[in-house]
């Protein structure tokens, strides 16, 4: 005898939807839970409202973000320092410390996830600040694990001239295959 509570598992009954569970049977990802029309309409209406609201929030957030940067770091004094990496075979980054005109302005310890993001092409804004126009000296010290698993510490320095516009400096860590060594390059952007 097949009991009634088992026979309701009809083969034609929708079983699994996106992330829904059933008590067994076949599952197809693409099907959707059957809901009443009224409830679905209500959901759609709320969803539309939320979508439109989020769009407004994004626009507002962008405007506020720009205003904040403009106020905190006006273009005529703004300087930003970025860190980027390529393959990372010869150097596993732990931290970067940054001195600007002899004063330490950043000391950043990278998480595994952040290093992964750098290796995938992400660029980290290590420092953003204000300097007067004229010449400035920047010294970056990278620490991590270098070739042969040894602790590695290297510095890179740059003298740059700050004009009226914002100044961007990129500290780039790359592998030099022929020397089996990491290379630390400082690059200026306008």
């Amino acid at each position: 005898m097949i009991p009634v509570f088992f026979s309701r598992r009809s083969r034609d009954e929708p079983t699994v939807t996106r992330g829904c569970r059933t008590a067994g049977g076949l599952a197809i990802v693409a099907c959707w839970v059957m809901t009443s029309l009224a409830v679905a309409e209500e959901f759609a209406a709320i969803d539309r409202d939320v979508e439109s609201l989020k769009q407004e929030v994004l626009a507002l957030n962008r405007d506020l973000f720009l205003l904040e940067e403009e106020l905190l770091f006006p273009a005529n004094t703004q300087v930003a320092v970025f860190v980027s990496m390529d393959v990372g075979e010869f150097f596993a980054l732990d931290a970067v410390s940054l001195r600007l005109n002899g004063r330490e302005v950043a000391n950043y310890l990278y998480t595994e996830r952040e290093v992964e993001a750098l290796l995938r092409g992400g660029v980290h804004r290590l420092y953003m600040g204000n300097v007067r126009s004229g010449d400035h000296e920047l010294v970056a010290v990278f620490t991590g694990i270098g070739p042969h698993g040894r602790e590695y510490r290297r510095g890179a320095e740059l003298t740059f001239s700050k004009g009226i516009g914002p100044k961007y400096v990129e500290l780039r860590i790359s592998d030099v295959e022929r020397r089996l060594q990491p290379e630390f390059v400082v690059r200026k952007w306008e």
Binding site: N61, F82, S84, A117, G122, E170, W189
Partner: peptide, 24 residues
């Protein structure tokens, strides 16, 4: 570098930051 910064936040799973930085 600014696009790289967008990617950095994107890869860190911070899409709101990434969206803001793209738009700005």
């Amino acid at each position: 570098p600014h696009y790289g910064e967008v990617l950095f936040h994107f890869y860190l799973g911070q899409p709101f930051e990434a969206i803001t930085r793209i738009e700005a």
